[in-house]
Every structure is written in structure tokens, then in C-alpha cells.
């Protein structure tokens, strides 16, 4: 079955960059973009155990007349077929549409509800966080300006969510044929521990076949090591893999990563279920 990626389009130069990123992602992985041009400032997403209300930044509603044409132009310019546009079917209240949550991917800017001036490193909006936390699909958080990526980098710390991220990374690499690099920052694990984790997850063979390089950083701080990640890589990482307490104490990997790397990120949440 064809995979779909939801993109909420805003008809501004910033929105154009976002859509270019989405379109590039879709083209690389042969996914169909599904574009939602919002008619209302709010929408709800009913996940399995949470309902997320997204109050869009007002710029999403700007220039609705040309939005469809612009979006089609961008997507087709990338060599993809005419995109499909999403029209909400259900409404919780008359101006409050429900968006389904059965997509395979979704593209979110770093912040979806606050002013776009806040979009920058080190900030991910609370709505985007909640979507990542509840969603079964991975969330693509593109870099602020369109930049094609030519390899895939997976941050593999060893947690169960990192295994999911690695599995997704391998699948992406297989699907688009781009090289895959794995970066590990051992907190308390040795190389042998990693091997065991791979073995247990049944990824050993795929890992050996698809991974181009595997770097295990030692001795240096995590943030410092982020420099090793190629500038033109799509960064795949798991989020919120630890328990709540541990996260409160130590912060999650995602926090550190997103404050120092400008790469496009594909974030795998704790509820992610494999689609490809």
C-alpha cells in the first residue's frame, strides 16, 4: 500500500521551504504527500490515549487563494505527481476539525502554534512534542531552509526507542539506497553491549549489510560529538525513550540533539509502529 505523509501547508516563504523538505523526503522514499491547507486556526488530533489540540500560528491561514496552486507547484517541481489535498471529514465543533492519525509520516516545523520567529535551534513547541509522544508515525522536523540530504544518520543509544530508530533508519536506507551511518554515545554501555542489543532485536544481519560506518564516541561530551554528524544527513533518532523520572533528571537525547544540530530530523516517538 502507498505510504502517505501529512504536511500542513502554510503559504509563506517559510512554508515553501518546509514543503520543499517534505517533497524531497517523499521523493527519496517514494511516499505520497498529503497536503492539508487549513481553513480553521485550530484542529484536533485524537491519538490512542491523548487528544492534542493544535492552535496554528496565524500565518497558516494567509493567502488561501493561491495556497493550492503554490503547493502543487512545489510538489510537482520536485518531480512528484500532483499532490492530494486533505479535507477534514469530522468536526468536534463546527470550527474544530479532527485530523486522522493513520498517516505513515507527518511533517511538523519545530513549532506549529507559536510565532514563526521562535523557530530556531533549541526550541520545539509543546504541541509538536505531544504529537511526537503520542503518534504512531515518525515526525519529520525539517531544517529551516531546504537542503537535500544525501545520507542517513541514526543516533543509536541502545534504548528500546533507539532500536526503533535504528530499524527505521535501516528501512529508509534500503528504500532510498542512501548510505547509513550510525552514531553511538555510550553512557554506560560497551561495544559488546551494543552487539547484544542488536542481536536481541534481530538486527545484526541488516546492521552489517546496510550500515556504512559505525562510530562510537567516547570520552568527549555528547554535544561536542554532534559535530561528527554529516551536515547533509537526515538525522533519525528516538525521543522520550526513557522513563518520565529519568527524563526529568537527565533530559532526553532529543533535547541535546535539537539544540545543537540544524539537520532535518526524523523523530521516532515511543508509540511508533513500524510501517516500512
Amino acid at each position: 500500500m502507498e505510504m502517505q505523509m501529512l504536511h500542513i501547508f502554510r503559504n509563506t516563504p517559510l512554508g515553501r521551504e518546509m514543503l520543499l523538505q517534505s517533497a524531497y523526503f517523499c521523493k527519496q522514499l517514494e511516499i505520497l504527500p498529503l497536503i492539508y491547507i487549513p481553513d480553521y486556526i485550530k484542529f484536533l488530533m485524537y491519538f490512542e490515549n491523548d487528544v492534542v489540540q493544535v492552535d496554528l500560528d496565524a500565518s497558516y491561514l494567509k493567502a488561501p487563494d493561491s495556497a493550492k496552486a503554490h503547493a502543487s507547484e512545489i510538489v510537482q517541481g520536485m518531480g512528484l505527481p500532483q499532490p492530494r489535498f486533505f479535507a477534514p471529514k469530522h468536526f468536534t465543533a463546527s470550527t474544530l476539525p479532527d485530523l486522522p492519525v493513520d498517516f505513515d509520516f507527518m511533517c511538523c516545523p519545530r513549532s506549529i502554534s507559536d510565532l514563526s520567529s521562535k523557530i530556531g535551534l533549541g526550541y520545539i513547541g509543546p504541541r509538536v512534542r505531544r504529537i511526537v509522544k503520542s503518534a504512531r508515525f515518525p515526525v519529520l522536523i525539517p531544517s529551516a531552509v531546504y537542503k537535500p540530504w544525501t545520507s542517513i544518520a541514526v543516533l543509536f543509544g541502545g534504548s528500546s526507542n533507539a532500536v526503533k530508530a535504528l530499524r527505521l533508519g535501516i528501512r529508509l536506507s534500503r528504500r532510498c539506497g542512501l548510505p547509513l551511518d550510525v552514531f553511538s554515545h555510550p553512557e554506560s554501555r560497551s561495544r559488546q553491549d551494543y552487539e547484544n542489543i542488536l542481536q536481541e532485536a534481530g538486527l545484526k544481519e541488516d546492521f552489517d549489510n546496510y550500515v556504512r560506518t559505525w562510530q562510537i564516541f567516547e570520552n568527549r561530551s555528547f554535544a561536542e560529538n554532534m559535530y561528527e554528524i554529516p551536515h547533509d544527513a537526515l538525522l533519525v533518532l528516538g525521543a522520550y525513550g526513557h522513563g518520565l523520572i529519568k527524563e526529568l533528571l537527565f533530559g532526553s537525547t532529543m533535547e541535546v540533539v535539537q539544540t545543537v544540530t540544524p539537520n532535518s530530523m526524523l523523530i521516532v516517538g515511543p508509540n511508533y509502529r513500524a510501517v516500512i
Binding site: 484536533l44 485524537y46 490515549n49 491523548d50 487528544v51 489540540q53 469530522h90 468536534t92 479532527d98
Partner: peptide, 13 residues
């Protein structure tokens, strides 16, 4: 609506 369509999910607000 929420009870019949979404298993009773309601917003905290």
C-alpha cells in the same frame, strides 16, 4: 461525539 467517535477523549482545558 467524543464518547461515540473517539472513546471519550476530551481536552484537559
Amino acid at each position: 461525539y467524543s464518547v461515540s467517535r473517539h472513546g471519550g477523549l476530551l481536552r484537559l482545558r
